[in-house]
């Protein structure tokens, strides 16, 4: 009788183990987790995935662009300070629409040439016009460089919250399911929570590279803008000296006449 009881106990124990094993063989692969999720969580996950794709596209694009821009600046500076005449440089550059320093140079030179071709003689007016033109093209260049960079900043700060939102919604629904089934077994709770946490994981996955690269690209833009500003100031100084020289020469001519 005692043996029978013992046997009964061990059999019940074995059955319990079997039951828990059966319960734990739920498919918890990534795809299954995604498919199990509710519509809101799915939308959040898809949105985060798209944000990740787009921010990586921006990262690749901008990195390439800044590298190119830096090389252009180096080349242009080399040519500019090589003692080549500005007229020649202008002629060679104005045919193709250049970026960066070239764009600044071409804009300023165009204004300069037009003013002299039309015979405008006020040196102060010319100086302000050239400065204005330089400022405008500088702003245009900066805008071109910084374009879409703000998306990275947005993703970097908002994606974790979006992921967290997905997680909270997922956990909420999974707890509602628990309340419905009246079972607090961890095997019942775990898949729902894992699925909800996937949303947070995706959010972080999108946000971390976005934040890192936003900071890096932002400093790159700042450096390039500094160089452009420096060039603009320098070029403006050169042109202003030229204006002074020319007006000085004219007044001397007049005085000689």
């Amino acid at each position: 009788m005692f043996e029978a009881a013992l046997f009964g106990v061990s059999r019940a124990y074995a059955q319990g183990i079997e039951a828990t094993e059966l319960g734990s063989t739920v498919d918890v692969s990534l795809w299954a987790l995604f498919m199990e999720a509710s519509l809101t969580v799915k939308l959040v996950m898809i949105g985060l995935l798209l944000a990740s794709i787009w921010s990586w596209a921006i990262i690749v694009d901008k990195s390439l662009m800044y590298g190119r821009t830096k090389r252009q600046l180096d080349r242009f500076e080399k040519v500019f300070w090589s003692g080549q005449s500005l007229e020649e440089l202008y002629r060679s550059l104005s045919e193709r629409s250049p970026n960066g320093m070239g764009a600044l140079f071409v804009a300023a030179m165009r204004e300069w040439k037009r003013s002299f071709e039309r015979g405008a003689n006020s040196p102060i007016g010319l100086q302000t016009r050239i400065d204005k033109v330089l400022d405008v093209s500088l702003a245009r260049e900066t805008e071109r460089l910084e374009k879409r960079l703000i998306f990275l900043a947005t993703v970097g700060s908002a994606a974790p919250f979006i992921g967290l939102f997905g997680t909270v919604v997922g956990i909420m629904t999974s707890f509602q399911a628990i309340a419905g089934s009246k079972s607090t077994n961890l095997a019942v709770v775990a898949p729902g929570i894992a699925e909800a946490l996937l949303a947070t994981a995706l959010g972080l996955l999108a946000a971390i590279p976005a934040t890192i690269f936003y900071n890096k690209l932002q400093t790159d833009v700042a450096k390039i803008t500094m160089r452009l500003e420096g060039f603009a100031d320098e070029f403006s100084a050169i042109l202003s000296r030229q204006i002074d020289e020319r007006t000085g020469a004219r007044s001397q001519q007049r005085a000689a006449e």
Partner: peptide, 22 residues
């Protein structure tokens, strides 16, 4: 950039789905 990024995501996701199973 967009094509590169999309391709990389597709590759990583398929790798994740294959290797990060249960």
């Amino acid at each position: 950039g967009f094509t590169l990024s999309s391709a990389a995501h597709v590759v990583i996701l398929t790798w994740g789905l294959v290797s990060l199973t249960s």
